[in-house]
């Protein structure tokens, strides 16, 4: 499982985490992706990074589906506490609550947290 916990641009964790997702997908692994905490900001729509000179990588999240990675989840509380809803996102992860996050994590073998 790959977990996004950090916001984009302020640091490179999310972007390089996404590169890892694409490689794992190419290996035909059963990868689940979870967005929690500030990680939910990585898939906010309407990003325009031109003036800060850093590549906008949010469109690359849409490519995830092309890699047959369909297990996309987002934590409800992380989303709502940040004033966001699924309508504000570039992809459509399944919204799950903390107890479902806990259950999902219990099913995984490895955790890569970016």
């Amino acid at each position: 499982m790959i977990v996004f916990r950090k916001a984009p641009y302020g640091s490179i964790y999310a972007f390089e985490g996404l590169e890892n997702v694409l490689i794992m997908g190419a290996y035909d692994q059963d990868v689940s992706i979870l967005f929690i905490d500030d990680g939910v900001y990585s898939i906010k729509d309407g990003m325009d990074t031109e003036a800060i000179g850093i590549k906008n990588f949010s469109p690359t999240f849409r490519a995830i589906e092309a890699y047959d990675i369909e297990k996309l989840y987002i934590d409800k509380e992380s989303l709502e506490s940040r004033g966001l809803s699924v309508d504000d996102l570039v992809i459509e992860p399944k919204v799950i609550d903390a107890s479902e996050v806990e259950a999902l994590m219990e099913e995984q073998k490895n955790f890569f947290m970016f």
Partner: peptide, 20 residues
């Protein structure tokens, strides 16, 4: 390549992450 991280995730019993 980054694929070598995927490989170790498959082969190892545990991958322990330090940092982030």
């Amino acid at each position: 390549g980054l694929g070598m991280l995927t490989e170790v995730a498959i082969e190892a019993d545990r991958v322990v992450q330090f940092g982030a």
